[in-house]
Design a binder for these strands. Structure first.
Lengths: 231, 231, 231, 231
DNA sequence: CATGAATGAGCTTTCATTCAT
DNA sequence: CATGAATGAAAGCTCATTCAT
């Protein structure tokens, strides 16, 4: 009947829903699931409590939507990675840098994942789209590792999953736990120099982990690498 | 006059305090700070809400006490590590196994740290004994790395802190995030085989990270190691 | 669009707020601030605890609102006083009767003021409208005193504030402290005769306090007055 | 058996009881009955909650004891008043000054009375010694008034009770309500000048209230008085 | 008599959620 | 769809009081 109006309405509705989702992401990331308040979310979204129930049904359903969106964005970002399989060391280095930077720039990603793991993944288990979240990052990594092996740079191919876990673990842990670690070490892990140092350390450790015995892989800025023969 | 009786009273009081602390550790580890209910804690401790306030003053103070106790235990456990500095590869391997097992056997350690980091370390900051938590593990690691270098097995010594972060990161992340990772990978990371595999992977990766160029370090079960010359 | 309906909603909301305020006035007047229970208030208002926090935010803020409303009503009542400045003795007498009757008919006024003074005025200090509470009664009194002086009935004008304090003190103290005073005197100060006697005594004392030396002012019921020359 | 020890014990016990009573007086005076905390009292008395129940039985019984002690002290103080009945104006003035100063120096007297009146005298009603509290002040006042009448200074004798109420009302109200009055007047009633002014005003008003028609009584500092004939 | 732990009812406050326009 | 009032359960915390040496 009034398509234009209906369209405008739908647009407005979508905007409301989006702003709630965005606000919820922030609030849950900051305070956890139990600590995240419905009212805080609705106010941050400049909307009303009621709207949250209208669009999402419950606090838990909202949290699930937040987790889903978080994965969607991560995979979307992963899809954007372009690597030259011909230069596996460069590609691997770029992959590490990507993950490190993604974690750094999306701190909610880390705290939301921690929150979800605190709850033993029960929300992701309820998600209908859970299956779709297997990341393109893994496949990329797999082909890079294969290429490196083929070129004699990497040893017999490691499981992409293991390398992924290694990269993610080293990057994630440093950022996720930097507050307690800073207290533990008596040093500020948030300083630029410390961050840069750790990024370099991850790269070095991963290259050493994948390198063929007797081969030393070096990643130089900007993203250069060399092959140094031994013996 | 009545030392035994007075002692009994104090003992009972200490027992009450301890059981509250133990219960709080479980509950906060399971549900986070905001999600952890005072009533749940007092019931689990077979005590009363009032006693929590009697002994600790507030929910937050109780949480701080939990965090402090958690660190104390960890450092206590670290103090028990005995390593033969003469066999640096074995020592380093043992160190890794220790941390991996500590995380596995003390899952609350992980979730409590995550919770504390969610709150940006604000509780540890309020702790009076925060300074004392610097772990003996770091110093041990330092001497092991030095010994390895001296023996020509390890390259010029890496910072103990970096190696510690590498080990902790790889071990911690796997265990902390296994629920979301299992969904992400579509595989169960909790299976014994998967756990054993990852423990081995960490050891291998760390040994490769610290090895002198051209040296391949291998850690064999049970805790054997060999030196394989290359070239 | 739907002004009547929207209006009805707002009206109902206002009614809820009002009934809470009314109930709170009663409860705080009866039991003091600490002794006044939130639940008692919400039940008396036929509402819910939650609504008190919805509309007022906290127990203290509710008490402040009660104090503000109490002052507002008092000043509103004072604004209704009509005095003929030409007949200062009658006017002053009427003023005294007004205050006496106001205290008698609004016993909460007295106990709320006592409660607020117990807390050293800390709530009124937090009130934003505190400034506006200076009563019209003072100005009225001032003009009555001036008129009396001009007519040669009153001595050189006393400060309206002092006369106000005298009236208020005598009336307030009798009513505020009648329970302990009754025990102290071994007599019932609440009997009609006793009350009427005291009202007359205040009037007489005040007239004597303001009278020009040598002039005896008499206030007869109903509100008549004569001037009796002396010497 | 061990009289000295028993005596010492009794003394210590009395000291404990007294310090609790003193602490309770302060706490109830400061926070009212409901607002006064048992723990606060026991801590202020450097004793234990349990001791309060040991010596007084309950919070209410403790409050009754406080009220009784308060009256006892007041009457004790009144008993110390020495007035020369031959100089009724001076005597009356001295009486007023006594009451004004007693109120000023014993602010707990005022707030405790207010608290007791808030509860409609229910505690004093439960006191067994309540009868004994009729003050010597009334009798003193009575004889002063009679003497003044006999000497032709005061009019036909007023009821001592009325004059007492007048003095008490004016003095008590000013001090009791000074916090709200200061806000109401926009002036500080606690300043020395203001206090001295009001003391003088009370004296003047009372003298005028009791003076024989045509007689002007003046009370000069220090405690002098003159008789000024009119006409 | 003194001491400090224990008790459970009850307090203020907050929560997620639903109702009524 | 939006708005804001309403709801009742449950949270953290405090209270006066009693128990057990």
């Amino acid at each position: 009947m009034k398509p234009r109006r209906a369209g405008a309405r739908q647009l407005a509705a979508q905007a409301t829903r989006d702003s709630i989702l965005r606000a919820a992401t922030k609030v849950f990331a900051r305070h956890g699931y139990a600590g995240g308040r419905i009212e805080q979310i609705s106010k941050a979204a400049r909307s009303y409590d009621r709207m949250i129930y209208y669009y999402f049904g419950s606090k838990e359903a909202l949290f699930i939507a937040v987790i889903e969106e978080m994965y969607r964005r991560f995979n979307e970002a992963c899809s954007g990675i372009v690597l030259s399989a011909e230069q596996p060391v460069e590609a691997l280095t770029a992959m590490i840098r990507f993950m490190w930077n993604y974690y750094r720039r999306n701190p909610e990603f880390i705290t939301l994942l921690n929150t979800e793991n605190l709850h033993r993944g029960k929300h992701i288990a309820k998600s209908k789209d859970a299956r779709e979240y297997s990341s393109p990052a893994l496949e990329l990594l797999h082909s890079v590792l294969e290429s490196g092996t083929r070129q004699g740079l990497f040893r017999e191919p490691l499981a992409a999953r293991d390398v992924y876990l290694m990269i993610a673990g080293m990057a994630y842990f440093y950022l996720s736990n930097r507050y307690t670690l800073s207290a533990f070490f008596g040093a500020d892990l948030d300083r630029d120099a410390a961050l840069a140092h750790w990024e370099g350390f991850i790269i070095e450790a991963v290259l050493r982990a994948v390198a063929r015995d007797g081969v030393v892989l070096v990643a130089d800025m900007p993203a250069q690498c060399e092959r140094l023969a031994v013996g």
